[in-house]
Design a protein around this nucleic acid. Structure first.
Lengths: 208, 208
DNA sequence: CGCGATACTGGACTCGTGGTACATTTTGCG
DNA sequence: CGCAAAATGTACCACGAGTCCAGTATCGCG
């Protein structure tokens, strides 16, 4: 019934989060006014405070929603890739290619990473929110490290790298690639960096 | 006479820029108030507007100062590295190691990249400022691509990569690494990502 | 010595907007 | 109906950007 891309209008709360996400990624959290959000979805200021007790609650909800969505995406891509291949290395290489394609297919390029945005404004948030961002990155490290370890068990690394670092590298390149793409106004740069990462992984485990 | 790290108090304008840089990297540009800056350096509001005609002028000056400083750093490291080695590949590998060490040696970790910060708040700035950020990244692409081309002329690449992408990768990893370090509160993550990049460059041109 | 820049101080005032509180009302639904 | 969910309206305060202007301290310099 409730599709992810619903035809009918989404609940107000979700509309608020969507408007907020776009605004925060374009102007930062502090410069995102509650007024503009309520204008965008057509409710009153009091209506906003019915859904979020204050602006900090919006910040947290925004972050949770973003992390959740990313995890769903990673799960999905990972699932599809492992279906296609028994071999852990081959499967991971397929996964990375899929990831690059997903990034490539976003109409105006990746809109931005909430974690990166928050990171550069972290004094605006409480420790709770900061902890959530750190945990999200930690989760991705574990996710990718697990895959890398399964690969390393079959393909002994030809290059001496720490698997934690190699797992973190995908997060770093994603965030860095998004920044490159946004600043240089070229959506291709992000997927290209992902493909470079793929080439590196290949070199580490395959030696070419 | 005028040293970069002067013992005497820096000119007010520079003090303002320093205070602004720290605040902007911690809270974002919009949340950085003129009031807090003048409190920090101990001048009046009128004093601020004597130095900067408005807040936008501060934003631009901050960016220019940052880009300038980074370029000086890159020039310096590059110069020292090329002095140590005739071979372009070896020289570049030395340079990357030095870069990682510089990042390692920053007391509380890298404070953050103004370009990344501005990128996530770009609607706050005019086209002029956005152009400056794009040009800075473009400059770094050219800088590193030139080095990579000189390497490729001697060491034919063993892995098929686009040199523009490989040049961009250092910017992406730097920005991504800074985010990793800040979010996870581990200053080591940035230099480690730089060293991973180094390993990749080595693999591309040396095959291991 | 005194002229004129440079580098500010002080104060008063406008304007817009963010954030909050609270009392009240509409809407949907069993 | 009757109750809860989902709002509305209104009033209020604090604060930050920006403007204007009149005044002052400190220089270097002819």
């Amino acid at each position: 019934m409730t599709e992810t891309t619903s035809r009918k209008t989404a609940p107000i709360r979700v509309q608020l989060l969507e408007a907020a996400e776009a605004a925060v990624l374009a102007k930062g959290f502090n410069a995102t006014s509650i007024d503009e959000l309520i204008m965008a979805v057509g409710i009153s200021k009091s209506g906003f405070f019915y859904h979020f007790k204050d602006k900090a609650a919006l910040a947290r909800a925004l972050l949770e929603r973003y992390v959740e969505a990313e995890n769903v995406l990673f799960d999905e891509v990972s699932r599809r890739a492992t279906e296609l291949s028994e071999d852990p290395l081959h499967g991971f290489l397929v996964e990375l290619k899929m990831l690059a394609e997903v990034m490539q297919d976003i109409p105006n390029g990746h809109p931005g990473c909430i974690i990166a945005s928050y990171c550069y404004q972290d004094r605006l948030f409480d420790d709770d929110v900061r902890q959530l961002t750190a945990n999200a990155l930690l989760g991705w490290r574990h996710r990718f490290k697990a895959r890398l370890e399964r690969i390393a068990a079959v393909y002994p690394p030809r290059i001496d790298v720490d698997l934690d670092d190699l797992a973190d590298m995908i997060s770093a390149l994603a965030d860095g690639g998004i920044i490159l793409s946004k600043v240089m106004r070229n959506p291709d740069l992000l997927p290209r960096q992902i493909m470079l990462y793929r080439a590196f992984v290949r070199a580490v485990f395959l030696g070419n």
